[in-house]
Design a protein around this nucleic acid. Sequence first.
DNA 1: GTATATTTGTATAGATCGTTATAAAAATCA
DNA 2: TGATTTTTATAACGATCTATACAAATATAC
Lengths: 219, 219
Amino acid sequence: MARQKSETGPVRRGRPPAYDAETALKRATETFWRTGYSGTSLDKVAAATGMSPPSLYAVFGNKHALYLEALARYWGISLAATREALAGDHPLDEALMLAYDAALSIYFSGKGTARGCFVVGTAVTEVAEDPAIRNSVAAGLRAIDADFEARFRLAQDRGELTPDADPAALAILAAATMQTIAIRARAGARRAELRELAQKAVRVICGCRPEPRQGTTHA
Amino acid sequence: MARQKSETGPVRRGRPPAYDAETALKRATETFWRTGYSGTSLDKVAAATGMSPPSLYAVFGNKHALYLEALARYWGISLAATREALAGDHPLDEALMLAYDAALSIYFSGKGTARGCFVVGTAVTEVAEDPAIRNSVAAGLRAIDADFEARFRLAQDRGELTPDADPAALAILAAATMQTIAIRARAGARRAELRELAQKAVRVICGCRPEPRQGTTHA
DNA sequence: GTATATTTGTATAGATCGTTATAAAAATCA
DNA sequence: TGATTTTTATAACGATCTATACAAATATAC
């Protein structure tokens, strides 16, 4: 009934599971990613994972719980990629481009046409009527804002931004840029075009720089 | 079989239709708006419009064609609202806020929780696998970019922006701001909060202003 | 070996999906 | 009035949906 941990305890009784829950969740995510939550049947998920419907239900509960788990998994991967890009010692504009390049790698992953962001492409539709999905999406969006804002505050402390720059406002624009890239990628924009878009956005966002060659201290 | 024009020709034969096609399309749009394309059954559309399924098929063809018509109708209303906001004689920052206020009025229209943008909330999910929806969405996104860019070029000509400002880059950020507002509205953000978000974005976007009190001519 | 525990595949239940056949209802034309 | 035209409502078609009942299969425990 329940899912066995990957690190098996003392001994495993009964017939051993034929599929790994983590890879099954990944395959399920890929399927939802293409056709959305409502547009994806459990038969399609079963075909993608190689698991039978009863096995899917035994491991994940039901379709809704499976999607929520896929959503949580995606948030984990996506937020970690953004944080890693912003955490390095690169200058602000380079750090932002690393974050957008990481996002583009996710949005253009998989075979066939680009799927964009899993959240923007599938969860946003359900968010209007589904409280659990709404909570997950709202929390993730807040996390993105907070990650960008923290990086802009750091940039301000380092003198990469003028003291009158508004880190919260810049974070909103940085997050908005990521989301418009997600939408456009799914709508068919080419990757190179979206990278240029990101560069243009970064140029404006980082426009609040101190005067060049005027000393490193601010104020 | 086909739809009769509102302006009746010489005389109308046969039983008169009980429902107006335009109001039916509006009601159908409201229904798709909440639960998406795949998540909305034709029975729900029939209940919302008061029409029976055969009548819906007689007027609109099928579910897909009905959704496409709802999408085209929404683009018309949405793009017109943005253009009207940007067309006035207001200063750049006021014009942008008029556009965002118009968008917020749409995103928070209807009863119950906010539905956000019809395109972002329902079409983006389908865009990955549906060529017709993809074409409509891609064209609409290009139109938004073009409308904003035209306004920024005008602002530059008027001296509201410095000559080195990049109208295309600012247009991307302006469009991205509208789309992040759409996402956040559907995810439950309060309207006042999103209006402040818009103001912060406008402040950054309009930051490439000429020096104040330094003459109105540029260069 | 026998008993117990767990997963598997098959098959399907019950509801809902998009769509349509059919005929009654309501108008005009002759 | 009766014939024609168009829309309506009822009913249902076959397909697909989420979810589960069931028994065979495969492991350990004794």
